[in-house]
Each structure stands twice: as C-alpha cells, then as structure tokens.
C-alpha cells in the first residue's frame, strides 16, 4: 500500500497536471464558451441547463 502510494506520487509530475488542466480548458471552451453557431446550437440546451451564458 505504502509502496503503491509512493509510486503514484513519483509518477506524477507537474507536466501531466498542466496537460490535464489544458485538456479541461479546451473541452470547456467547446462545450461552454465558443460562439460558433454550429457549436452553439448543438450545445444550446446543455449550456442553458448548466447556467453557462448562452446567447
């Protein structure tokens, strides 16, 4: 158990954290922010339901 924990910590450096944050931002830009009309129309109901500013 202890070894596993140590190993997990050693595996994770700042780089994957930065990548994860960037991936998250890109996904949220598409689903919640981008105003391109195709994206907007497809994400419309979900944006309203999630309280994202929609249009």
């Amino acid at each position: 158990m202890n070894t596993a924990t140590t190993q997990t910590r050693a595996d994770v450096s700042l780089l994957p954290i930065a990548f994860a944050a960037l991936a998250g931002l890109m996904l949220l830009f598409a689903s919640g922010y981008a105003q391109a009309s195709v994206l907007h129309d497809a994400a419309h109901d979900q944006r309203h339901a999630m309280a994202f500013p929609c249009h």
Binding site: V12, P16, I17, A18, A20, A21, A23, G24, L25, M26, L27, L28, A30, S31, G32, A42, A43, D45, Q46, R47, A49, M50
Partner: peptide
C-alpha cells in the same frame, strides 16, 4: 447532443478538478 455535451463538459470539469486535486 445535450447528452454528448454534458459528457464533454463533465470530462472537462474532471480534468480541471483532478489537476487541482493532484
């Protein structure tokens, strides 16, 4: 589309939240 974008949104939230947690 609503289901699809919910998945996109929550995976996005998941990446950001996990980044903060880790």
């Amino acid at each position: 589309m609503t289901v699809g974008f919910n998945i996109v949104t929550y995976v996005g939230f998941g990446f950001l939240l996990l980044a903060a947690m880790v």
